[in-house]
Nucleic acid binder design. Structure first.
Lengths: 233, 233
DNA sequence: GTAAAATTAGACGCCATTGTCTAAAACGTC
DNA sequence: GACGTTTTAGACAATGGCGTCTAATTTTAC
């Protein structure tokens, strides 16, 4: 029942560095094996082998397989949420060179939140074990994709307010932005592959072009940024 | 080694009706259990129970668990492919009322190919077992989404040739059409849910509106279909 | 009705895995 | 060097699933 989140506080100061390293090693190995084999197919022995740890040590930290699984999911969810927040903070808020800026943002989003290790893990596990652990993945649904589209919706609203975009429904536009960004990567993503940097760049470019053809202002489309940011900022 | 695909031919005529019914019952039950539990988590006993069939009967038809799994996947893939072909044949080839026709087509595509039983099964299984059976799902990749975007690409090309659309890259447009169509359904799809008819309709409407804002001809956007179909037809 | 084929229930051996237990070893602190 | 904690390797029982086998029962064709 100890709090897993406290890194090096409130303990007697005995051997928390070693313990913490073991815990992280176990969590990483378990994420790897759970992701490849699923919950039922993953064996504690394999996790122990990957983590270079005795099986007993795993049972020492996490009482049973299910406890370990829940801890792994929460750990990955926290990392993924932090990364999502970090990427969202780089959303362009000026209207100059909107196509390039949105393209770069789409690349960051896809690379660091959707096509990365944690993103693949969560998507896969949500599909395989989502029905078995509803409350666990309900929170992911709300804090992951839910938060993404909500935040993007607000950010697009800011851009539209500055006159850079002509959007009628911000929520729809946010979801479509994400969907367009993944359009060219869907197949590779489904199979578990990781797109190359060139593929990421091209996919984002195609997505943003279409997105701006649909939602860009005429001045933007012709390549004349209206420079409204200086006025409203 | 008998050919599973021949329904009632080339056998001695003994008891193929009962056998065929059993086979289908087993395949359906196995698809259900494999989809819920994954390959490792599915037990033959549960499949037998769901199929209302003795366990020995399963081993009689399919030598081992893996044989059954492969047969299930191939069966579902065949059904899904037939359905996809059928839906693709309803793609609008006239330019009148393009928005409504494309919307109705998107609804059909999502409802019958992507959000239906078989679509969810294949997507889920591709993610969970795709790495373990590469050749099996490689053919799905090529005949499923691959064939979908290829065919859609050609169909959009035909529409563009008639002057109804202004598309520079047909492949990209096809992938984006599919992606936009799923944009509003992604969350529900990931969790395994089935969208309602209203949700399907609204999602398709949003998708086609944006798609036509990006690729529609100006005349189309203003609601003046150019009536070129009569000339080129 | 009869014979052949298919199906069924149940038991069985086998193996992998889970989770516990124990004694020995390693580690860190004093 | 002593001590407490953690880790380790291995043994252990218990469970459950896979695949086989057999004998009894049902279905089907003729």
């Amino acid at each position: 029942m100890k709090d897993r989140m406290t890194p090096a506080v409130q303990m007697t100061g005995h051997t928390q560095r070693g313990q913490c390293a073991k815990r992280m090693s176990i969590l990483d190995a378990a994420a790897d094996v759970f992701c490849r084999q699923g919950f039922a197919g993953a064996s504690i022995d394999e996790i122990a082998a990957v983590a270079c740890v005795s099986r007993q040590t795993i049972y020492n930290h996490y009482r049973e397989k299910e406890t370990l699984f829940v801890a792994v999911v929460e750990d990955v969810m926290n990392r993924a949420n932090a990364m999502l927040f970090s990427v969202l903070s780089t959303f362009p808020d000026r209207a100059d060179n909107l196509e390039d800026e949105l393209t770069a943002f789409a690349v960051r989003l896809n690379k660091n939140c959707i096509c990365n290790h944690d993103g693949k893990f969560l998507r896969k596990l949500v599909q395989t074990e989502g029905e078995r652990y509803p409350h666990l993945f309900e929170s992911w649904r709300q804090q992951g994709p839910g938060k993404l589209t909500t935040a993007l919706s607000a950010l697009f609203g800011r851009l539209a307010h500055k006159g850079a975009l002509a959007i009628d429904d911000f929520d729809v536009a946010a979801r479509q932005f994400v969907a367009l960004g993944n359009a060219d990567l869907q197949m590779k993503i489904l199979l578990g592959g990781t797109p190359t940097d060139e593929e990421l760049e091209k996919a984002a470019r195609n997505a943003v072009r279409t997105f701006l053809k649909a939602y860009g202002r005429p001045a933007e489309k012709a390549g004349h940024p209206p420079q409204l940011a200086a006025i409203s900022g």
